[in-house]
């Protein structure tokens, strides 16, 4: 269980990184905290010829407030988001969710951008940032573009990233004072992958009533509107919302997804 031979670069600037990532003569992959890619390398599921470590690029490690949004660099670790040395605009969503990602050892290295780029449907940020209505800023040699979370995650391990592009920033909109949120995930044990995730946000000032069902073997399922909050989170309703996902056809999975969302909803209704 050792990785294949590969080269390793650790550029100091984003431009240098993007230049390396645009090389077409070698199979190149970016790496940040390496909490998903590391095991894949060792299992030889990933066999790159060049790894570009982007964690030394200063601008990717900053968190700053920009008007009504919080801009989080892609290489900010879960641990830092957990510890909260930044102006949290999410009424506790970011530190609370960060604190339940895997284990602290993973959080110390794992990054928010890496988690999104990996696009595991069970990942916390994949679902929570969708619920929050965040945007992902993608950088490539051709410049930058901003993509809403709902268009960024396309499926299991599938994103809007094109070859040579990386996640540069995540823009999280500030919640209003009366916003309420709920988060519940069903894990076999602490720190394990979620089998069903519910993330919900009610922000009346911004007209948001949003439920997200995650870890569904596909992209996060977004259900906007008041219906589920008003006692409509039933297995029958969820079967319709999850239609097309394997979870819809498996009674136990359907039940578990319904319960996860119901419990997340209960947190905002209580």
């Amino acid at each position: 269980m050792k990785a294949v031979d590969f080269d390793y670069a650790q550029p100091a600037t984003l431009d240098a990184a993007l230049e390396l990532l645009s090389r077409e003569d070698v199979m190149v992959r970016p790496v940040a905290g390496s909490q998903s890619l590391g095991p894949m390398l060792n299992l030889r599921l990933a066999q790159p010829e060049l790894l570009v470590d982007i964690t030394r690029i200063a601008e990717l490690r900053t968190i700053r407030r920009e008007g009504d949004r919080l801009v989080i660099g892609a290489c900010v670790t879960h641990a830092r988001l957990e510890d909260g040395d930044y102006p949290d605009v999410t009424r506790g969503v970011l530190p609370s969710v960060a604190a339940v990602i895997a284990y602290r050892a993973v959080r110390n290295r794992g990054t928010i951008g890496g988690s999104l780029a990996h696009a595991d449907p069970a990942a916390d940020w994949v679902n929570v940032l969708t619920a929050l209505g965040a945007d992902v800023v993608i950088a490539g040699t051709g410049g930058r573009r901003s993509v809403p979370m709902t268009d960024f995650i396309l499926g299991v391990f599938e994103t809007a990233l094109q070859p040579g592009e990386i996640v540069a920033e995540i823009h999280v909109p500030a919640l209003s004072d009366r916003a309420r949120w709920g988060y519940y995930k069903v894990c076999r044990k602490t720190g394990e992958f979620s089998h069903a995730t519910g993330a919900v946000l009610i922000d009346p000032a911004r007209g948001v009533q949003r439920c997200v069902a995650g870890a569904t073997s596909g992209k996060p399922v977004v259900i906007d509107g008041p219906a589920l909050f008003a006692g409509g989170c039933t297995e029958a309703a969820m079967a319709a919302h999850l239609a097309g996902s394997p979870a819809a056809d498996d009674p136990i999975a359907l039940r578990t997804h319904t319960v996860a969302l119901k419990r997340a909803i209960a947190q905002v209704m209580s």
Partner: peptide, 14 residues
């Protein structure tokens, strides 16, 4: 199961 992601063993909290 071929990794601890699939083969679960109890940890501190379990």
């Amino acid at each position: 199961a071929s990794t601890f992601a699939d083969y679960l063993i109890p940890g501190f909290t379990e």
